[in-house]
Computed example of a mutant assay.
Amino acid sequence: MTTTPEILRYSAFAATPEGGNPAGVVLDADGLDETRMQRIAAEVGYAETAFATPVPGAPGHHRVRYWSPAAEVPFCGHATVATAVALAERDGAGTVVFETAAGSISMESFADADGRVTVSFTSVEPQVRDLDVRVRDRLLDLLGLVPSDLDPRFPARESFAGNWHPILVIADREVFHQFRFSPPEVAALMREQGWLGTVTVLYGEDPADLEARNLFPVGRITEDPATGSAAASTGAYLRAQGFPGTSVRIRQGRHVGRPSELLVAIPETGGIVVSGGATPIS
Rank of each mutant, 00 (worst) to 15 (best):
V26T: 05
V26K: 02
L27N: 06
L27C: 06
L27Q: 05
L27K: 06
D28V: 00
D28M: 01
D28R: 10
D28W: 00
A29T: 03
A29Y: 03
A29C: 01
A29G: 06
A29H: 01
A29I: 02
D30R: 15
D30G: 14
D30T: 13
G31P: 01
L32F: 00
L32G: 03
L32I: 04
D33M: 00
D33T: 03
D33S: 02
D33W: 03
D33R: 02
D33N: 13
E34W: 00
E34V: 01
E34T: 11
E34S: 14
T35H: 13
T35P: 00
R36V: 12
R36C: 04
R36H: 10
R36W: 05
M37S: 07
M37A: 09
M37D: 06
Q38A: 15
Q38T: 05
Q38Y: 01
R39T: 14
R39K: 13
R39Q: 15
R39D: 15
R39V: 04
I40R: 02
I40H: 05
I40E: 06
I40C: 02
I40N: 05
A41R: 09
A42S: 14
A42T: 14
A42Y: 08
A42F: 11
A42M: 10
E43K: 13
E43D: 15
E43R: 15
V44Y: 05
V44G: 00
G45M: 11
G45D: 10
G45H: 12
G45F: 11
G45C: 10
G45E: 11
Y46R: 03
Y46T: 08
A47I: 07
E48I: 06
E48N: 10
T49R: 10
T49Y: 07
A50F: 01
F51C: 08
F51N: 09
F51W: 04
F51A: 07
F51P: 03
A52I: 03
A52P: 03
A52H: 03
A52K: 04
A52E: 04
A52V: 00
T53L: 12
T53I: 11
P54V: 11
P54G: 08
P54C: 09
P54F: 05
V55F: 07
V55T: 14
V55I: 15
V55M: 13
V55Y: 06
P56S: 14
P56G: 10
P56R: 13
G57L: 11
G57Y: 09
G57S: 09
